[in-house]
Structures are given as structure tokens and as C-alpha cells.
Nucleic acid binder design. Structure first.
Lengths: 209, 209, 209, 209
DNA sequence: AATGAATGAGGTTTCATTCAT
DNA sequence: TATGAATGAAACCTCATTCAT
């Protein structure tokens, strides 16, 4: 009973610590330079031990991503559940959840961005790709529902809620993409400013007229 | 002399054909699976010959990208030069240039997207990174000028033109990113629809009120 | 005490069940693919437990082989003990004991064949090699005595009994070797036919003239 | 023309030298301890270069084996072509070709023996297995024809020539197998004596009566 | 100018075995 | 006694790049 649960919990903790180590290394050197060796060192384990918990390097990344993505899903779910209360400010709540998602753990967010590229997805084994897909789909559907609510309530312009969700979401993605690019170019960026302007544009643009 | 020029022209042609080959292979298998071997085969050359024209694999990609980017710059320049004529429809012209850029050569566009990721940029040698930076900057400045024009003319809301340019551009980038992701997941997408909605949102959102 | 004996008996039974498990796995996947993990699973034990009973993987195999080899020794001993009765048919009895040895447990026979290769033997620690050697020697000596009897009785041609024993034994080994080879090549074989012809040849060839 | 041929010849020589190196290492440490690293060192090449000539370690071995096997085929072919001349002594010529095969290059012979085990064959990729199969088949058929000739000429007893060929061949194999085993056990062996006795037994045993 | 040949630098993965509980 | 967890040691293979012709 208790013993089994403790074991399970310990195993989960160990897994989590590997995931953490992986994301730390990723933050420093990027996906390709993240070797099993480095993850192991960071997690203070041996390389072989990693394989006790995850079958491949990509599995580590996908799990890290999915677990983060679940957190994002929770944010969205919360917004949806409290939609009535925040009615008028629902777009802002929505947009803010993106920002929170990013700010809480930009590393994982970037890993997500990276793995969702065609190149990466295509090279992934079926099962991992499906995992990503599923976790993405959940969030996608939540976004759609929130948009749908806004449309139904006459807050947003009348349009396809899915396309609307995608438009907002991709606007956010693009901003992060550019942010990363600029960072790598050692250029200053003004993330908050861009976020704010984008929010304004979108908020006004999608408002019912 | 004529001879020297012919030589130069031939060399340029050969370079272009390598660039082409590289993009073709990239289209089929992605960046990492694009080996020098495959590029060489496609260009009907030997691997070693590639090195007579480009110092590294990444140099090939960067040149390919930059040359495409220049084409994009021309589109933007044209819009700017004819800004008076298309005054009222300037946002649409702007947005359409993005679509054209993508549609004329989606492969290069994607390569560009790929190389502008933090991960890629960071692993690039200084000179190549600079090359990308410069070619990006030119376009960036053109975008800014167009936005500036719109603001000054009272067509767009009053805001920082650079931030505005980025916002629009990143909205486009994000859409492509998602498009690729969906393609790799074998999911249907509705690129045109999303493009249209995004254009509507942005056009309205940034309009002077 | 009874308790001590029971413990001992239980331990022996456990050992035997591990040996069995090992041979089962070996039958399915061969020596190298036989991992401790698989043996453990088959024996319904954990990997680490195996090491309570046997020091190494090879020790398991050697024990399995030796125990089978003892059974073969018994067959030979029986023939020797009843040599007078089967006098005229002693070669056939001898040859038949080989066939029985093989047919009763082809898996162990093959494991034996495998371990008696130079490659395997050389990589074995001294003690295990000695174990194999000893168990082989016992049978070898029995074979020699049987041959000696045949020679002394004027049944077989006059020659060195050891060389004769080896000749017959190796003829058998070779047949099995080819049998396995053919099986792996998915070719039909005619084991019985070859056995019969070999027996005929040898019987006639070694008969006193 | 000439240049192409020289290149080809050089490439073949390089291949042969790799094969040689591999067999040398194999002779010293056996199949499993033969690493690409060791082969490369012996051939005075880098590990990667090996992969320029052979796709895998097993491919090296199979090629080495097959090339040896071809030599054996030549021996057999010669016997068959000169069957009339050696008529009465055809069995001895046959048997002697086995001995020659072994004595000229015992290392390759043993590698052959090793690879023709079920375990090895089963783990080989289809193409390599086929290669071994084909080269074995050629020799097998030659053996059969020689046996057939002996039977037709009334030299050998009337029986299935294929079974006869196998019986003789496996008798030889078995002797080598035991020889290796004894060598690994640091036991003296009397290869020649056993060969002679086996030859006698078989010659007499298969003689027409 | 063109190329075939060579290589160095890694990376992932698998297992037998040991240790702490 | 039994075991889950951890590890060290290798081995194979790929590819961008350089060099000699």
C-alpha cells in the first residue's frame, strides 16, 4: 500500500528531476547540443540511468513539453470556467494566459515551439508525435470554446471560432519567435510593448462592430 | 575582360544551382537530413566540389535564404515606392506581400523561419549570423517605413511604427508556423481563411479611430 | 536437520527453475539475445535475484549445459554397462545414444555446441571452462571405453580408441551444426536420413575387415 | 579507361586489406572482441574509413568468408573437372580439398564455421544471409556432383548423393569444431590422426560392396 | 575546376553487474 | 531472501569537412 505509493511518488519525482535537468541544459545550449550525457550530469545521474526512465532523448523532451502544456491547459480551463465573471475582459484574460504560460517557463515554451516545427515533428516516432498532438489538441479546443463564447455573447465579431483562436494564438507564437531571434542576434527587444500592441490590435480588430 | 566576366557568370550560375539543389533537398527532408552528399547528388556534383563554392553547409543555407529575402525586400520596396497610389489599401498591399513571399517559394520561407530560430542563430558563426541579420534588417526597415507612412497619413493608429511592423510580421510568421505544424501532423489546415481573418483583425485593429 | 535439508532442496529447485528459464529463452532467441532480464522474467524473478543463485550469466549457461551433459553420460554409462548384451549392435546403440541426447533436449545440445566453440571457451573464466571440460571429459572417457571394448572384441577395426570415439562423435556434431545452419536459412533438412547414412558409413567403415 | 581501372583495382586492394586486417584480429580475439576500432588500427585506417568500404562489421566478415569460400569452390571445381584422372582416388582428393581449405587459412574457415551457426545467421540481415547462402550453395552443389559421379561410376555405394556429400562434409566440420574446442581448453589434439581415421572410415564405409 | 578518399568528433543505446533497502 | 535502482563500459554508425590528385 503505502510502500508502493511511496515508490511511485519517488519515481515520479525522479522523472521530474530529469525533465528539469533536460530543460536547464536545453536553455543553455539548445536542442541539438543537449546530449544525454549533459542531462545526466545535470541530474547527477549516469547516462544509463536516464534510459531507465525514458526510452530516448526525444521522449524526455516530449514529456517535458507535454507536462508544461498541461499547465497551460489548466490556465485556459480556468478562464473558460470563469468566463461569466470576466466577460468584458475575456480577451485580455485570454491573452494574458499566453503571457503567463510564456513567462512562467519560457524555456519549456521555446522547446514547445521548437518541437512543433514540421522538421521536428516529422522526425519523431509516431507515439511521441501523437502525444504532442493530443496535448496540443486539448488546449486548442479550450481556446476554441473561449472564442466561441465571446462570439456567442456578441463580444467578438462573428466568425469561425477556430480560425479566430488560431489567429490569436499564432500572433502570440510569432512574437515569441521574433523575440528569440532577436535575443540570438543580441538585439534589444521590447517584448512587453509588442505584446501590448498586439493585444490592442487584436482586441479592437476582433471586437464586434 | 569578357573572359573574366564569363567565368564570373558561370561561377554564379553554378552557385545558384547549388542553392537550388539545397532547397530542393531541404523541401523533401528538412534541414538535418539535408546532407552535403544529397545536395551534391542533386546538383550533379561531388561533395567536395560544393566546398569550392561554399565554405560550409550552413553557408549554403544562409545564402539561399538571403537571396530569397532580397526578393521579399523588393516587394516591400515596391510597396513603399508606390505608397501614394495604394494609400487606402496600403495595409492590404503590405499583407499581400507577405503572402506572395510565402507562396512564391514556401520552401525558402520555411528555411528562413528555421534559421531565424534562436537555436540555429546561436550555432551559426559570426559572419553568417551577420549576413542573416543584415538581410533581415533591410526588410525590417522597409516595413517600418511603410508603417510610418500609414501612421503619418493618419491611416493607422498612432503608435510606434517599429512595434507595429513587428506585430504584423510576427502574426504572419505565427500562421506559417502553425501551418507547418499541422502539415506534419497530417491535419487539414485552412491557410487562406486564417490569412484573411488575421488581415481583417489587424486592419481593423490598427485603423485610426 | 530437516530444516537445513529443506532449505537446500528449495534452493536447488530454484536453481533448476532458473536453468530452465534460461534454456527456454535461449531456445527462442539465442545466446546473445538472452538477457538476464529475459531469464528473470521467465523465471518470474527479478534480475538481481538471479545473482543470488549464479554469479554470472555464463555460469547459468554452463550449469545448464553440464546438467544436461550428465544425462548424456548416463546414457553412455548404460551402454557400457550392458555392452555384453548388445555386443553386435554396440555401434548402433552408441550412435543412438547421440540421437537420443539430441532429441530429448535439442536446445541444451545446441547450447553445448555453442559453448564448446573456441570463441566462447576462450572468453570464459577459468572455473567455468574447467567445469565444461570436466563434464565433457567424463563422457569422452566413456566413449573411449566403449570404443575400446569394440576394438578388443574384434568388432571394430584396430585403431586408437580415442581417435575412433572422436571421429564418430564429431561426425554427429557436424550433422547438428549443418542442421542448425539450414534451419536458419529456412531450408529443408533431412536430419534422419543423414543420421542413417552417417551411421551406415561409419558402421561399415569401422567394421573389422 | 586506364585511370578508372586503376582506381577500381586500388579500391579492391584496399577492401582486401581490410578483410585481411579483420581476419587477423578475429584470429586473435574472436568475433565479438573484434571491434571496428581494432580492425581499423590493424589496417592502419580510421574507423570511419572502414564504413566507406563496408556498411557494417558483419558485412566485412561475410565478405571475408565468401571470398574464402570461393577459393574452396575452386578446389572442388578442379576435382570435378579432373574426375576422370583421379577416378580411383576421388574420395581422397575430395577429402584432401577439405584439409587444404582448412590448412590454407584456418582463421577464415573458423569464421565460416562461426557464421554458419544458427545464432549468427538468424541475427544477420537478409542480404548478408543470402550472400552466405549463395556461396555455400555453390560449393554444396559441386560436392553433390562429385559424389554423384562416384556413385554413377560404381565407386561409392548407391545412395542419395546429396546426403552423402553432407555426411562427409559434416564429418569434417565436426572434427574442426572439436579441434577448436580442444585448443581453447589447452588440450593437445591430433588433428591429422583424426582426419586420417575419419577418411579411412568414410572411404571404406561408402565404398561399394 | 573537380573529385575520391580519409578522418575526427560525437551521440544513442544496450546490458551485465552491484548496491542499498 | 528478494528487488528496484544505478551504473560503467562499449559498440556501432553518420556526417561535415579536408587533402591529394
Amino acid at each position: 500500500m503505502g510502500i508502493k505509493e511511496r515508490k511511485k511518488r519517488e519515481k515520479d519525482e525522479r522523472k521530474a528531476s530529469i525533465l528539469n535537468a533536460a530543460m536547464q541544459v536545453y536553455a543553455e545550449v539548445g536542442y541539438h547540443a543537449t546530449t544525454m550525457e549533459k542531462i545526466a550530469a545535470r541530474a547527477e545521474l549516469s547516462r544509463a540511468t536516464l534510459y531507465l526512465y525514458f526510452k530516448t532523448k526525444d521522449e524526455i523532451f516530449v514529456h517535458a513539453i507535454v507536462s508544461r502544456s498541461d499547465y497551460f491547459g489548466d490556465l485556459l480551463q480556468y478562464i473558460y470556467d470563469h468566463r461569466e465573471e470576466s466577460k468584458d475582459r475575456i480577451f485580455d484574460a485570454f491573452w494574458k494566459s499566453f503571457r503567463t504560460f510564456y513567462k512562467v517557463d519560457p524555456v519549456s515554451f521555446n522547446a514547445t515551439l521548437y518541437f512543433h516545427q514540421g522538421e521536428m515533428l516529422r522526425s519523431l516516432p509516431e507515439d511521441l508525435r501523437l502525444m504532442l498532438d493530443r496535448s496540443g489538441t486539448r488546449n486548442y479546443q479550450l481556446m476554441c470554446r473561449i472564442m466561441e463564447y465571446g462570439i456567442d455573447e456578441g463580444l467578438f465579431m462573428d466568425c469561425d471560432p477556430r480560425t479566430l483562436a488560431e489567429t490569436v494564438w499564432t500572433a502570440f507564437l510569432g512574437i515569441i519567435h521574433l523575440e528569440n531571434s532577436k535575443a540570438a542576434m543580441s538585439r534589444k527587444n521590447h517584448l512587453e510593448m509588442t505584446w501590448d500592441l498586439a493585444a490592442t490590435l487584436l482586441r479592437e480588430g476582433m471586437a464586434r462592430r
